[in-house]
C-alpha cells in the first residue's frame, strides 16, 4: 500500500447512480467524505469492499490512503474529492426543476 499512509478510507461508486461513496462510521455508504470511516489497517477495509461489490451495491471499491490530516495522498483521490473544476448544477432538485421545464421526451414504443 501507499507509503506514508497514515490511514485508509474505503471508496466506491454506487452501482445505481455511479456517484462516489465512502464507507461511513454508520456502517453503510455515504456520499460525504466527512462521514468516512478511517482505519489504520488496510486489511480491515479491503474484504468489506469485496463483499459490498459481491452484494451488487457498489462497483470499483478501492482504498483511499490519507495523511495524518485525513487528506488523500494520491492526486487522483484529491481531485476526485474536490469534484469537477467547472461550475455545474449540483443537486438533484436543480436537476428535476430543469427537467420540468425541458421539453417532453418522446418515448419509443
Amino acid at each position: 500500500m501507499a507509503r506514508n499512509a497514515h490511514a485508509y478510507a474505503l471508496s466506491a461508486n454506487d452501482l445505481l447512480s455511479g456517484a462516489q461513496v465512502f464507507w461511513s462510521t454508520n456502517g453503510g455508504w455515504s456520499t460525504s467524505f466527512d462521514q468516512a470511516l478511517f482505519s489504520q489497517q488496510s486489511q480491515a477495509l479491503e474484504p468489506l469492499g469485496t463483499a459490498e461489490e459481491a452484494a451488487n451495491r457498489v462497483v470499483g471499491a478501492a482504498l483511499i490512503p490519507v495523511d495524518a490530516n485525513r487528506r488523500p495522498i494520491a492526486l487522483r483521490d484529491q481531485r476526485r474529492l474536490q469534484g469537477v473544476s467547472v461550475a455545474v448544477r449540483t443537486t438533484d432538485n436543480e436537476r428535476s426543476a430543469n427537467a420540468n421545464t425541458a421539453p417532453a421526451l418522446a418515448r419509443a414504443a
Binding site: V88, R89, T90, R95, N98, A99, T101, A102, P103, L105, A106
Partner: peptide, 13 residues
C-alpha cells in the same frame, strides 16, 4: 434537439 433535451433531463445541462 433530442441531444439537447437529454442534456437537460439526464445530465447537468
Amino acid at each position: 434537439r433530442m441531444l439537447g433535451n437529454l442534456a437537460d433531463r439526464y445530465d447537468k445541462g
